[in-house]
């Protein structure tokens, strides 16, 4: 087990058109894309959704292999969805039957639709994280949620927590790796035994990791205080999010496209 292989919200720095788009629009468009996927109905609307995805991947200059990698971990989920859809979709056109199990044309079509949806959904979201730095993401979320401040949602605090969490994930992974090695050197066994034994074997890893995380939190809070942190009030930013006219044009064009697909999808195209 090597913890340093874990990659969370991986970001590939770049300067493509997709990278440069205002992150707020990127988040909103990704969400709308997901909605569109579920409103899509016929072959035509699915093909357009796939085409949009391919165009965006091409524009972002992220390799198709990296996108495929993001889909791989949910392979099992895709398989289960496919099986459930194949066997449980009611249909007339029976192709194969055994005991209570039967496969219908409708079932196969529905399974294909679901698989296409899930793959495009995951690939689309991964394009968002691949092309948007964690900082931009949290800033965009803070900005998008800012209307909620009216109802006293601590928007700044939430985004600060998210960005600190992102900052410390690699540090804590590295630390977990070190503690694990140290305990292995004392004969700890993380890899054998039943579930109960394995959970128990994690204690020598988890206790020091938590203690360290608390210590880090304490020290970080102190360092932030020393650097005059006083919440979001009166705070300025080095990089203020500012959508350019081009961003608006892209956003509204894509928005209309999604709306058209959804309407076409409702009519069965």
């Amino acid at each position: 087990m090597n913890l340093s292989n874990i990659t969370l919200g991986q970001y590939f720095p770049g300067d493509s058109a997709v990278h440069r788009l205002d992150p707020r629009y990127k988040i909103v468009l990704t969400l709308l894309y997901i909605v569109t996927l579920f409103l899509a109905g016929g072959v035509f609307s699915y093909l357009v959704c796939a085409a949009i995805l391919l165009v965006v991947i091409f524009l972002s200059r992220i390799s198709l292999r990296m996108v495929a990698k993001s889909v791989a971990p949910i392979g099992v989920l895709i398989l289960i969805t496919a099986v459930l859809n194949i066997f449980y979709t009611p249909g007339e056109n029976i192709l194969w039957q055994w005991w209570v199990l039967k496969i219908t044309t409708e079932g196969i079509l529905s399974a294909i639709r679901m698989i296409a949806r899930i793959i495009m959904l995951v690939a689309g979201s991964s394009i968002l994280t691949y092309t948007t730095s964690p900082i931009q993401l949290t800033d965009a979320i803070e900005s998008l949620l800012s209307p909620l401040r009216v109802i006293r949602v601590p928007v700044h605090e939430i985004s600060m927590m998210m960005s600190i969490a992102l900052r410390f994930i690699p540090t804590l992974i590295e630390e977990a790796d070190k503690i694990m090695s140290a305990q292995k050197a004392r004969g700890a066994d993380f890899e054998s035994g039943n579930v109960f034994r394995r959970v128990k074997a994690m204690i020598p890893l988890l206790v020091p990791l938590f203690i360290s995380a608390f210590r880090r939190a304490d020290e970080l809070a102190l360092a932030m205080e020393c650097r005059c942190y006083n919440g979001g009030k009166g705070r300025t930013r080095l990089h203020k999010l500012k959508a350019a006219p081009k961003d608006h044009v892209i956003f509204f064009t894509v928005l209309l496209l999604f709306a058209a697909i959804s309407v076409a999808g409702r009519f069965g195209y």
Binding site: E175, K178, A182, A185, I203, P204, V207, P208
Partner: peptide, 9 residues
């Protein structure tokens, strides 16, 4: 290891 006190549990 370095800073072995970080492994105490």
């Amino acid at each position: 290891f370095q800073y072995p006190e970080h492994q105490l549990f």
